[in-house]
């Protein structure tokens, strides 16, 4: 076991890990931050996406020790201190961009990374950027609309008028 230290959602944390301890395992098991989900073992589903030093990564495909000293952001750190949803989270609720919720943390973190790189993405850019995030419930339609809305672009209302 090796002690690893990092900053997670602005808080200094540490824990004992093995070489094989994945960042996702460290977050879920050591820190109890179970919002980061694991939906596959081939680095494709993206339910585990977190930000490491500001970049979206798949936390199931990175060892905890590789994140030593890093600044890590997870879904648990996205809402305001008073619990209010951030712009992206609120848009996902407003536009029904989630159903079972399992892929949602990774979707929100990927969306945040996209909007940092590209504040006004087109529909095609959003769809292409989500290549590494699989959702089985929504058919992506409302996820795309939520991200459009979060970027301040016009989106038709969700339900039939």
């Amino acid at each position: 076991m090796t002690e690893v230290k990092m900053t997670v959602n602005g808080r200094e944390v540490s824990g004992d890990v093995e070489g094989r301890t994945l960042l996702s395992t460290f977050l879920r098991e050591n820190l109890g931050l179970t919002g980061t989900h694991v939906g596959c073992d081939t680095s494709q589903c993206g339910a585990c996406v977190v930000h490491v030093n500001g970049k979206a990564v798949k936390s199931c495909t990175m060892f905890a020790q590789e994140a030593a000293g890093a600044d890590v952001a997870t879904i648990e750190g996205q809402a305001g201190a008073d619990g209010s949803l951030n712009t992206i989270q609120q848009a996902f609720q407003d536009y029904h961009g989630l159903q079972c919720g399992f892929c949602t943390p990774g979707m929100v973190m990927s969306a945040a990374a996209l909007l940092k790189e590209n504040p006004k993405p087109t529909e095609a850019e959003i769809r292409n950027y989500l290549e590494g995030n699989i959702c089985r419930c929504t058919g992506y339609h409302n996820i795309v609309r939520a991200i459009m809305a979060a970027s301040g672009q016009d989106v038709p209302a969700v339900a039939a008028e």
Partner: peptide, 18 residues
Amino acid sequence: KRREDIRFLTGAGNYTDD
């Protein structure tokens, strides 16, 4: 709006593996 979304969007869902 869906009330269950609040917990799913903040990482506070309670799935069996949690």
